[in-house]
Amino acid sequence: MLNKISINLKLILGLSIVLSLIGFLLIFVLAKSFNIYLFLIAIIGVFLGWIFYEDETAKALLFAASTSAGAILLLIAIFLFIRGFPAFQRDPIFFLSGSTWNVYRDIYSLGPMIWGSLIVTFGATLIAAPMGVGAAIYIGKFAPEWLRSVLKPAIELLAGIPSVVYGFLGFILLNRAIMDYFAIPNMGQFIAPSIILGFMALPTITSVAEDAIDAVPEHLEKGALALGVTEWQAIKEVTLPLASSGITAALILGIGRALGETMAVTMMLGHKTKYPSPLFDIFEPGESLTSLIASQIGEASGQAVDALMGAGLLLFFIVLVLSTTSRIIQSRLQRRFRRG
């Protein structure tokens, strides 16, 4: 009898927490008004639950903590899709490949910005890929222990510098230096954020590539050395080919980082929403997808908001594909060595 009542109580309690939380979220998302009472019911529920059924409540809370990240990703994806889809619906081909972004005439196509993102990211990769992989090889294979213990945290610290600091340095120093050195008449050139983003993507590439190099079983390299090759030959012929998929994953992650970086790019780029002419002129001012959103969302209204949401959706999709690809490659690599 008592047992039955307590089960019912548990059920009611659990349901009231879950339902009030869901209701709270729904009201919050629909933004009608901030309904504090549902949230209070959930808090009271948790509070009572903790007193009477501590084990179950603790488990439920831990479950909620761990799954909320996934739920948030899902919510972001759904929101972006709902808000961003109308921009694609009208004329997807023009939206992605046209050449006009005119707020005053409500004509929106992302062509110049997609091209701008490509230029900036390509430039960044040209810098970050050789430097990052080179640093990974040196740190993983050649560096003496003391140097390694200095270099590794130093490169990781590079990732800890806020992007606004990179942007500020780039705007104050690099934009002007490029203008003077190449005698060009304008600031906001594509090449400035390319260089800065190269450094910003460096830590990602180095640390993931170094993990990949580390993951190659030592006995394979030792075997090669025993056959009389030099240390570099062993790395070149054995380690690098085996780590190549991991290094690819590192590069993809680095590219994703450069593509998604916003603050530094927004501060340095010239926000000109047109194709550079000639197309590969890295000294022209321009716009990337991220800096477009950052610089215009505050002032946008009506269709412009839709178009910016569309740009956000596109970015989200590209970065999602890049990081998923990189994940798949990494897990394949791990499986291969575990079997071998």
Partner: peptide, 12 residues
């Protein structure tokens, strides 16, 4: 409704 083509860069 104009397109001032001479503007090189824009700042927020």
């Amino acid at each position: 409704d104009v397109d001032p083509a001479g503007v090189d860069i824009r700042k927020g």
